[in-house]
């Protein structure tokens, strides 16, 4: 089992505060594959990305996530990253006084290694990555994301993705806030990482325009905390043309359940693993 290379999400349930958001998500991403997760606002897309990386405030109540056989949910965030997971945030955090270069140096430093030992390599890698996505290298020494435009922040995320060389990347709306040129540069770099390095990609997006360049192997429709439909690239085109209602109705999903509202049956029971079999179905 340890030899199998796959990011496997099984029956993942999670809540934020008192609100149950994910109700059993199943997904598998293999090296070199691109999976798109699409879904209406509030369907749990961002929650999924945060849960995978272990963001504080997001509580897993059931299911499992393994990365190449490693139990990801048992690890603190930084060890999930070192195990091979990258999360590109929808809203990259501004970190005053801390440079991109110092973060990448610390993120790649092995225990026992002196700080700054490999700084020169890091700098070279970052300069090379910056040129690959048309990112001015003056940003490398600037405080992380401070006073950057939305598009520059996303290029920054892509640059770190390239520099850190992780095995799987969760991209939380990497396409939002990007102009056409930036979108092309960013999605081309990600496509190259899948082709050249076998990066497995889970791309969370609202729009199919990202998928014009970054061609998905599978498209998953997430709604009401579950994967409701799965298809090929044509599914993304259909969603773009028709919206979610038709696809979700075919899948028999409960459409329009507002995000963050607890299922009546889940209310008050936190035992955790999936639906409570003893809940009153009429409640």
């Amino acid at each position: 089992m340890g030899d199998e290379r796959v990011l496997r999400i099984e029956g993942l349930c999670a809540r934020v505060g008192e609100a149950e958001i994910l109700h059993g998500v199943d997904l598998e991403v293999r090296p070199g594959e691109v999976h798109a997760v699409m879904g209406p606002n509030g369907s749990g897309k961002s929650t999924l990305s945060h849960v995978l990386m272990g963001r504080p405030g997001y509580e897993v109540t059931g299911g499992s996530v393994t990365l190449d056989g490693v139990d990801l949910l048992a690890l603190p965030t930084w060890q999930r990253a070192r195990a091979g997971l990258f999360l590109a945030l929808q809203h990259p955090t501004e970190v005053p006084g801390v440079s991109l270069e110092s973060v990448v140096a610390e993120a790649t430093r092995q225990s026992g290694e002196e700080p700054g030992e490999s700084t020169h390599d890091v700098h070279d890698v970052l300069v090379r990555e910056a040129s690959r996505i048309g990112f001015d290298k003056r940003f490398l020494a600037r405080p992380l994301n401070v006073d950057l435009s939305g598009g520059e922040k996303k290029r920054n995320e892509t640059l770190m993705l390239g520099a850190l060389g992780r095995s799987y990347a969760v991209l939380d709306e990497i396409d939002s806030g990007l102009d056409v040129d930036a979108l092309a540069a960013v999605s081309r770099r990600i496509q190259e990482a899948t082709d050249e390095d076998g990066l497995g990609v889970l791309a969370i997006t609202h729009f199919s325009r990202l998928l014009d360049v970054l061609e998905p192997d599978r498209v998953h429709v997430l709604a009401a905390g579950r994967i409701q439909a799965v298809g090929g690239p044509e599914l993304a085109e259909r969603l773009e043309a028709e919206g979610y209602a038709g696809v979700l109705a075919e899948a028999g999903a409960s459409v329009g359940l507002p995000a963050g509202v607890t299922h009546p049956g889940d209310d008050g029971h936190d035992a955790g693993f999936g639906e409570d079999p003893f809940a009153d179905p009429l409640a």
Binding site: M53, R55, P56, P76, T77, W78, A81, R82, F86, L87, L89, P92, T93, V95, P96, G97, V98, S102, V103, V104, E106, A107, T108, R109, P143, L144, M160, L164, R166
Partner: peptide, 21 residues
Amino acid sequence: FFLESRGVPTVAAERLLLEGF
């Protein structure tokens, strides 16, 4: 969290943040 999500250990992340502060 942002620094940890890049693979920076918690202690090192706090250190970077305080130096930056």
